[in-house]
């Protein structure tokens, strides 16, 4: 195999890996602030893709995808606020004893509800928005315009996210909550309101991935399953709660899957990531960038 062909496989893995990273970022962000796993993350990805499609097909027209994208994100952000306020907040204020189990049951119920709502409202068929951009070439890799837009969109969103987290007051509050939820309350931060924002931002990131990938990976009721599946794999590889870990984990997973499916067998594409995951759990249980939890 020559270097040209090999570079195509590596690049294809890198591109999908960066996008995987965006899928995982929302999960890890919500976990780091609220200390809960959102099992319905894939369904927020799915809702993002449906909102994007509905806006383009029914309101804005196919060419205004860049207008639809922030609208889809904001819609899902608002939905996230409502879900957090009415379904998840009670577990932080109501003296719920088994908080993890509560969160698991509520988010799995949401997953089933949203999927079935999608079937009822949109039917079981798949839809696809028209292409966002013309096909192009990334170094040696022929790539669809949609995938290129998704890659660039992901990089922009990641940069914005880092900027907000590192330089703004709310970003410092998020970092504080990630380190010590009780500690930031002593500094006057309303941690419940912060939770609501964190949940909204996390699910809006998933919605962005769904909206960006809608023309390539299609819009249908179960399209979020892959996002949840890969997202959890990535956060274990990268380290639970680590934002950098979710990006590096995503890229690693994308490249390993691409090379494994070409050099070994594509029938086991999902297995290669799990082999990496199990190896990491054996040799580095905290993941690549995760830290061992310290309690006093």
């Amino acid at each position: 195999m020559d270097a040209f062909i090999l570079s195509q496989y590596v690049l294809s893995g890198l591109v999908i890996g960066v996008i995987y990273g965006l899928m995982a970022l929302g999960i890890t962000f919500i976990y780091s602030i609220m200390k809960m796993i959102n099992w319905s993350m894939g369904e927020f990805y799915m809702i993002g893709s449906y909102v994007q499609y509905a806006l383009l097909a029914g309101v804005l027209g196919w060419s205004l995808w860049y207008v639809a994208l922030p609208v889809a994100m904001v819609s899902v952000f608002l939905l996230g606020l409502l879900v957090q306020r009415f379904l998840l907040r009670p577990m932080y204020v109501g003296g719920v004893e088994r908080r993890d189990e509560y969160a698991t049951i509520v988010t799995i119920a949401l997953m089933v509800l949203f999927r079935n709502l999608a079937i009822v409202l949109g039917g079981p068929n798949q839809y696809a928005p028209r292409d966002y951009a013309r096909a192009t070439t990334l170094v040696t890799l022929p790539i669809s315009g949609n995938r290129m837009v998704a890659l660039l969109g992901t990089l922009v969103l990641l940069a914005l996210f880092f900027l907000v987290i590192k330089t703004t007051w709310i970003g410092r509050a998020f970092r504080g909550a990630a380190q010590n939820r009780v500690g930031i309350q002593t500094a006057g931060v309303d941690v419940l309101r912060l939770d609501m924002l964190a949940f909204g931002v996390g699910v809006a990131l998933a919605a962005a991935a769904g909206a960006l990938l809608a023309p390539d990976f299609l819009v249908y009721p179960e399209n979020g399953a892959i996002s949840t599946f890969k997202g959890f794999e990535i956060i274990v590889i990268g380290g639970l709660g680590s934002i950098l870990g979710s990006i590096v984990g995503g890229i690693l997973l994308g490249v390993i899957e691409a090379l494994g499916s070409v050099f070994l067998s594509p029938a086991y594409k999902d297995l290669y990531g799990f082999v990496l995951l199990i190896a990491l759990l054996v040799f580095r249980p905290t993941g690549l960038f995760g830290e061992r939890e310290r309690t006093v």
Binding site: A225, S261, K269
Partner: peptide
């Protein structure tokens, strides 16, 4: 080439076929 039906990104397999 046989692929897993659950996989949505088939670019590596399609590139392999193209090459």
């Amino acid at each position: 080439i046989i692929f897993d039906r659950a996989v949505v990104d088939l670019t590596p397999q399609i590139l392999e076929i193209k090459n």
